[in-house]
Design a protein around this nucleic acid. Structure first.
Lengths: 335, 335
DNA sequence: ACCGGTAGTTGAATCGTTTCAAACAGTAGG
DNA sequence: CCTACTGTTTGAAACGATTCAACTACCGGT
């Protein structure tokens, strides 16, 4: 069905080797021949078969990117950065969505491994990195994205989530808040626990301040709305005067939950709100949301760079950590 | 480097054919042999090479999905639906982002064609479908997503954008608005022109109503903000009392532009706002945005189904058209 | 002892591309 | 006329999985 080098060769009246040379090293072929072959390629609509190339080369020209949640704009921006850098090196990025499901993460890893991708960027779901270690042992370089780890045998690009959590909590404390709630989950996500730890550290340094951990099932709009509605009476009762959400989707949902219903509370009047990631929708919310910004596209670019570094023989895996930055908006204004 | 059937065969003390049989038709192999082979597979960490399989089969188990803008939650939801349906059929979906760039669209089409994907779902950028016709001629089935076409030789899944535009405009007119503005662009996108046409038709049926086309560079938050700021004085001057945005990203940006600056206007007091797609952020905006809803995940699922249908010999390409639905929120309340 | 049949296993051929040693044609130098 | 060399082209081998005709071993029946 599909056109192969063989047909092109026959049409141009040369051998398959020559066709391949025309494509890959045209300067060692006579100009006249090059022309003949190109004519044949165009006439037949020849498109090289990537499967055959990958088989020959031992690996494909693609990088696999497994995101925690592709519907979170944070990850699409990271992916955009990765694509950009990959394009510069003549590679492409295939995006897969683990949707916070361990099972899907597993099946995507396998899919990419079967595809002999050139490398894997993973925003890993679980604390257990054993599976990724297996992948690496089989010769596929792995870079962890948005997640640092003590295991320095992995290359990683991350943002200091403990510092980010501290930044957020300190900002709330500086604004005069004392009864904080941290909303996030599942606790199996490192991002969630680190951000909480940072916030808790900041809170511990202030005498009369406290922080409470409110666990959610997922870092989603929906999850936030539910918790927001639950927390509303407690805010009204003065038990909570500030909420730090583990990401912006959650924060936006929380805001909806808090502002909805029969007896909405005021933001920032009754309660201050801080999110994380600074996705573009955070600024567009009912009350613009203060957020901890991460250099999203830079994270993606750097991940691809680290991946390419890993391929050099004897290369040491690097851990790159960026610093987060607080973007203050109306949702956390002092009272 | 990587482990192949050959090594597995050697380790298990059988031939390569037997290893393959164990994997693909275990019931014709002696139980004892199956066990031996599985042991070898586990010990060596064998992962089948998808490139070799694809080469042999003539095509891969993956479907390519080229989205107009992967950072638009609308498309990630469509992709989610597609993935779900694909998973049911044992396939996977590879996502690529054309970012409203014709050049990137072209390069992704080529990438997928090289990869001999099983089919292509495309949300096409340009009116010119010639390139897709070439792809199809080379034997790769194509389904157009979110875009109908007169060319009935293409299978497509779309939502009636003319009806959607009419729905939006009629809603605004019913609310007493008369001086409408349609904001969208580029005009090369069918979605944009169809939605405008529908709106214009509704406006034409009301005597003293008018509609104006305001063109933007892209359907993005940023583009909306810019136009919103530009339109603000004209709204204040009473020249415009309703805005229909070609999608929700634009609408959210517009809202920010209208509400910002020194002399913000009131929504829906001074101007009503309607968006399109009903992405989850629309409801979370400063003023919750009325929007025309499309069955996002269903679109994705249906696209995959149509693709599989196309593979059956002699199958006729189907055009599926869904009906849009208006979701009224605060941004378009009557005065 | 021979035939037919069943169950299990084998290994060569195939897919499309790239590589590389070898072949070839032509030219300059001796 | 031979040698050495350059520039160009060739065709077979290799990558890994699957398929399928051919083969082996064994059993039951005659």
């Amino acid at each position: 069905m599909a056109v192969s080098v063989k047909e092109v060769a026959a049409r141009a009246g040369v051998s398959v080797g020559t066709v391949s040379n025309v494509i890959n090293r045209p300067d060692m072929v006579k100009a006249e021949t090059v022309e003949k072959v190109h004519a044949a390629i165009d006439e037949l609509g020849y498109v090289p078969n990537a499967a055959a190339q990958a088989l020959r080369e031992g690996q494909s020209r693609s990088i696999g990117f497994i995101a925690l949640d592709a519907s979170n704009p944070f990850f699409t921006d990271v992916a955009l950065g990765a694509e950009r850098q990959a394009a510069r090196e003549g590679l492409s990025v295939l995006l897969a969505n683990s949707d916070e499901s361990v099972e899907r993460e597993r099946s995507h890893i396998e899919l990419f491994e079967r595809g002999r991708v050139r490398g894997l960027l993973v925003s890993p779901l679980v604390e257990d990195l054993a599976r990724l270690r297996d992948v690496r042992r089989r010769g596929i370089p792995v870079v962890l994205v948005d997640r640092g780890t003590e295991d320095t045998s992995f290359a990683s690009v991350s943002v200091d989530d403990v510092a980010g959590g501290e930044l957020a909590a300190r900002h709330l404390l500086d604004g005069g808040r004392r009864r904080l709630a941290f909303v996030g989950g599942p606790t199996s996500l490192r991002q969630v626990t680190d951000r909480y730890r940072g916030a808790a550290a900041a809170v511990a340094s202030v005498d009369d301040a406290s922080i409470e951990f409110v666990e959610t099932m997922a870092l989603s709009l929906r999850g936030g709305m539910r918790v927001g509605a639950e927390l509303r009476p407690r805010v009204a009762a003065g038990e909570i005067d500030a909420i730090f959400a583990a990401n912006d989707l959650l924060a936006i949902g929380l805001q909806q939950g808090l502002l909805g219903g029969d007896e909405p509370v005021a933001i920032p009047g009754d309660v201050a709100l801080v999110g994380y990631d600074d996705i573009s929708f955070a600024a567009a919310a009912v009350v613009p949301i203060t957020s901890v910004r991460q250099p999203r596209e830079l994270i993606g670019e750097t991940a691809v760079t680290l991946l390419e570094e890993l391929r050099e023989p004897g290369a040491e895996p690097r851990q790159v950590v960026f610093e987060p930055e607080l973007v203050a908006r109306a949702s956390s204004a002092s009272r």
